[in-house]
Design a protein around this nucleic acid. Structure first.
Length: 472
RNA sequence: GGCCCGUUGGUCAAGUGGUUAAGACACCGCCCUUUCACGGCGGUAACGCGAGUUCAAUUCUCGCACGGGUCACCA
């Protein structure tokens, strides 16, 4: 399920919950050829991961079941026959060849392809005859040929279509299954669906739906059409293009709540300037009037920023519960994980980034002595060597190893040498980590690595710099 | 092509017949600081174009351009 689908589900859920309604899950599987193994499970899983629960559905039941459309097939034909009886639908015996022919001619002459009404006015005798002799048929909706149909959409306002532009769409297919368009209307009515929230691609078929409601004498639902979520200014986000699905984003290390928060905000805006909302807060603040009319482009950096905000808002315990597996995937040795966790928290945007941040802990990576050269810190290879040589005995003398004791010892040194902090601490950090960016400075790293490991890495740093100065 | 819809900074977006046209992300700068990050402060950057209505249009109307959707025995 890609994020556009999920967003629509979210809006539906929020609207229902906000107004004390029920959120109903119905599986629309009238196309047997497109059946995908495991698709229903993916839907369940995605909704659950997003925190959406349904009040009625295939697995939880309800008073309007069954909730899987393929189990409701017996229902639709009678409704279609009712429409035929009332004159709003008719049997059509045209085969595919004829239909294709008509379409080709229409296309060639530049007319919009549309059913030509060949079977619209067959006499009931003719129909009965063909039915009896077993000619395959479909049932088509009989569109008015004059006038127009206007409907109101909550997002887009009043929209009018000429009836003459409407195609006599198929209601019952030749395999006797209903089309989605038909089953959807019948089931929405039967299940007492009050609000239809869907993608704007359905805007142009809505008049047909409404004509169906009118023909049955049923009251129309409230329509809320949402603009699509785009991957760029011209392409829609779609699973087909390999674009990120909700599942993919979770696998990339994004938090489900953060993704939910972000995609609700894509194409909708709250009245306030806040932007971090839990699902239950969203139920309170959500309002369909905030849904925008124009498509929104999915922006990963913004999602990342929101994810980072969620991480920073976590308690230390919660942060560690997420971070631990990532840390331990590369840190096998024992260390002060609490300290590391604190260091990591403000530096983590997505949990997947953690391993590369802490990969220097278990073993010192190979590094270039260039790292010792830092303009702003005013360090170079010579004075770094000097700093490390002075640091070594100081730290060897620290008995109880802790962030505080290391800090005090080093700052005494810095003071006595009358140097800027960075002159001493930058070389230390490089020697300890072999990296230019680390989660924390030299003192924190020393505390984290422990006395023996720190001393050993400082000695390695000294050797490295000595060999360089010997070359010169 | 017909029909329907849309167009405010790079992105998400607020908003109005008269505003210094919010805010967030990204970007840049400064402060904090042992790097980075966090945090704080500041900055660059927008009403697609052309008419019309009006004392006044980003806001209302029309046209154009651009973009999207739709035109299945798919959903």
């Amino acid at each position: 399920m890609h994020v556009g689908n999920l967003r629509t589900a979210l809006y539906a859920y929020l609207l229902a919950k906000k107004n004390g309604g029920d959120f109903v899950l119905r599986i629309e599987d009238t196309d047997r050829e497109r059946m995908v193994e495991g698709a229903i499970e993916t839907i369940y899983k995605t909704l659950k991961n997003a925190g959406i629960s349904w009040d009625e559905g295939p697995d939880v039941g309800g008073n309007y079941g069954p909730y899987i459309q393929s189990e409701r097939m017996h229902i639709f034909k009678d409704y279609a026959r009712e429409l035929v009886k009332k004159g709003y639908a008719y049997y059509c015996f045209c085969d595919k060849e004829r239909l294709d022919q008509v379409k080709d001619i229409q296309k060639a002459s530049g007319i919009a392809p549309k059913y030509d009404g060949h079977c619209r006015n067959l006499s009931s005798e003719e129909v009965q005859k063909k039915l009896k002799s077993g000619v395959p048929y479909v049932i088509r909706q009989k569109m008015p040929q004059e006038g127009s149909t206007t409907f109101h959409d909550v997002v887009f306002g009043e929209i009018t279509f000429e009836n003459s532009d409407l195609d006599d769409q198929i209601l019952i297919k030749s395999d006797q299954m209903p089309t989605y368009n038909f089953a959807n209307v019948v089931d929405d009515h039967l299940m007492e669906i009050s609000h239809v929230i869907r993608g704007s691609e359905y805007l142009s078929s809505t008049p047909k739906y409404n004509l169906l409601y009118d023909a049955f004498g049923w009251s129309r639902p409230v329509y809320i059409h949402c603009p699509p979520v785009m991957k760029n200014s011209t392409e829609k986000l779609s699973k087909r293009n390999g674009d990120a699905t909700f599942e993919d984003l979770l696998n990339k290390g994004y938090l489900p709540q953060a993704v939910v928060n972000y995609i609700v905000m894509l194409g909708w805006s709250p009245k306030s300037e806040e932007e971090i909302f839990s699902l239950s807060e969203l139920v309170d603040v959500f309002d369909v009037s905030g849904i925008s009319k124009s498509p929104a482009i999915f922006d990963l950096p913004k999602l990342t920023a929101i994810n980072a905000k969620y991480i920073r808002n976590m308690s230390d315990e919660e942060f560690w519960s997420y971070a631990e597996p990532y840390v331990k995937s590369v840190c096998k040795r024992e260390l002060d994980f609490k300290l590391l966790s604190q260091m990591l928290k403000t530096r983590t945007e997505i949990f997947k980034d953690i391993p590369q941040q802490v990969d220097f802990i278990d073993s010192l990576p190979k590094y270039s002595s260039d790292l010792y050269i830092h303009k702003k810190m005013k360090t170079n290879e010579e004075n770094s060597l000097d700093a490390l040589r002075k640091i070594l005995p100081i730290l060897e003398n620290v008995d109880t190893w802790s962030k505080e004791s290391v800090h005090d010892a080093l700052f005494d040194l810095i003071k006595s040498l009358n140097l800027k902090n960075g002159r001493v601490l930058w070389p230390l950090r490089v020697a300890l980590s072999g990296k230019s960016f680390t989660p924390g400075g030299g003192i924190e790293l020393a505390a984290l690595l422990g006395k023996d490991e720190s001393i050993s890495r400082i000695k390695k740093g000294i050797e490295k710099l000595e060999s360089i100065s010997n070359q010169n």
